[in-house]
Design a protein around this nucleic acid. Sequence first.
DNA 1: ATGAAAGCGCTAACAA
DNA 2: TTGTTAGCGCTTTCAT
Lengths: 349, 349
Amino acid sequence: MTGSRQKPTIYDIAKLSGASPSTVSAALNGTWKARRIGEKTAKKIQKIATQQGYSANLQARGLRKARSGLVGMILPVHDNRFFSSMSQSFEAHARDRGLCPVIASTLRDPQEEIRTVETLISYAVDSLFITGATNPDALSEICIAANVPHIYIDLPGKLAPSVVSDNHLGAELLSRKILQTMPKLDDPLRGRAYFIGGDTDDYASARRVEAFRKTVTHESGDISGDQIIACGYAPGQATREVKALCDRLGGLPAGLFVNSLTAFEGALSYFVTLPPQAFDDCVIGCYDYDPFGAFLQFPVHMVRQNSDKLIARAYEYFDAGTTKADLIMVEPDLIPPRTIYKGRFAELG
Amino acid sequence: MTGSRQKPTIYDIAKLSGASPSTVSAALNGTWKARRIGEKTAKKIQKIATQQGYSANLQARGLRKARSGLVGMILPVHDNRFFSSMSQSFEAHARDRGLCPVIASTLRDPQEEIRTVETLISYAVDSLFITGATNPDALSEICIAANVPHIYIDLPGKLAPSVVSDNHLGAELLSRKILQTMPKLDDPLRGRAYFIGGDTDDYASARRVEAFRKTVTHESGDISGDQIIACGYAPGQATREVKALCDRLGGLPAGLFVNSLTAFEGALSYFVTLPPQAFDDCVIGCYDYDPFGAFLQFPVHMVRQNSDKLIARAYEYFDAGTTKADLIMVEPDLIPPRTIYKGRFAELG
DNA sequence: ATGAAAGCGCTAACAA
DNA sequence: TTGTTAGCGCTTTCAT
């Protein structure tokens, strides 16, 4: 069994090459030119290292240099289109910078968020990306105490820079699209646009409601309180509310702004009970994107939060080395019905 | 600026408490009972540590103990329902064991897979979960050389234990369901079941085709080669092939076994061009699950690979400390049409 | 152009 | 019951 041999260290390579450990170290970590090691020495050492299957112990290096080469990200769940595409981007950008990404989900549990941030800090992550935190400021305090640069994605923190999707703009685009393309109906109540789903305590939803309000008021002169049904994100609740709305109106409204994929799923489970022609005089929009939206029996406008752009901006912020707490806005994309979006990683299944 | 202070070490705590570093170490890492440290000493130290905001430097611990407390997983992409739910399970199980999960995607690039495995090994991961590898054996060699326990998920490796979804069983269940519920049509060609999508070079698909073959032969006495259209996973290709098939048959076949979500997406982009009644005499099944399948205008049976079970079995294997290279089979679930599956993390958006 | 040696923060013998 | 000490593998002055 040769398989159980230990991994070689710089001391092993030093012995084999006749050079000292520090020379080996320099030869192998790229600093040899700066350290004025002879080219032939360096090459020789590198050759031996390769032969021996040497690779640096990154824990040891991290310990010595007090930076690990790890970048951390915390998010609520992996199992979600938005967050998983963030992971994908986060990772790609980390690789571009020679860093090793560590992504952890916290299940929207404040305790878990704190524990996770502490764990990542214990592994000496060089910086931390935080998304979907329930209590940003508590996390910032921990990071600040540990001297770890951090940035919030999609949800602003007061104590650190943040990159957020421009919810107001996205909702405005979607609202306007709905209002401008929806049919004129005789029934005044059915002829209006309705906003469904989400929680106005939530930063993102509050901004979207605000934009919906503004746009509807702008286009139709006024808006009534019952046009906004912020019934939370749970699919079941959305199902009930959409059904109640349609029962009240005697049919689908002319316009429907659905404020999240989960609410959309809920609405859909009511929609499948409807005949196809029920959708003839209704324009539907969904804030959030899922490719399957393209395959429904009725067209639906979707807003796609550009996760890659959010992540890219965050990295750029760190690259720039700026230090003041900024709020960086990223515009979302309005996706026309029946569009199958091809993203950066679209060809991979 | 108190924020820029360094993190306290056991030496700081030692000074403050009057105890020695090793006593502090034991008091703070839980080994103090075994080390026969007095309870009051331990408590005092712990109190001071908390006050000082101490947390262990896990790199240093890892270096000393030669195990990092990290568990690695590599997968092709994050941005995929199956893999992201694997991530979710992988992480939950890691947490249960007090380990820190590091998940890396390799974009189905053999070079990237190797680089990533090497990186994770350099961080001294305690074990490695590998899924969707293009060249398992090469990765095993690296892991074996570095003495890192590893396990393959969903794709068997020859040199290490593997937990795989029982593709044969899943395909058999789905095939049987399709065959037993599909309508009897007068047209003999339309009256058959067809298999579309996937690549027979691929381990999983090969097993599925095998099961489809067997089941069809068993139920209808024989099978013709043109019932199997393994046209790859690309949506575009599936669109073309489904369209060609329907053109040839003069309508949808009585049964259609679609062999992946991506192929299904492709089929759907043809289906949206069809009138709803086109689906009246066609039973559709899809190997792989997406909740949006529940919202289509026609019913579709889906097979859900139970990612949580795959991961759980893999962890159990390590827990058991067994060493021989096993092949562990996990049965997938057949999901009836219009079912919105509620998983372990279903309530989290 | 290269080597010797200290030390990053922690744990684990071994002493006491 | 607790302290002393060596050393995990690496980087980095400081010498030479």
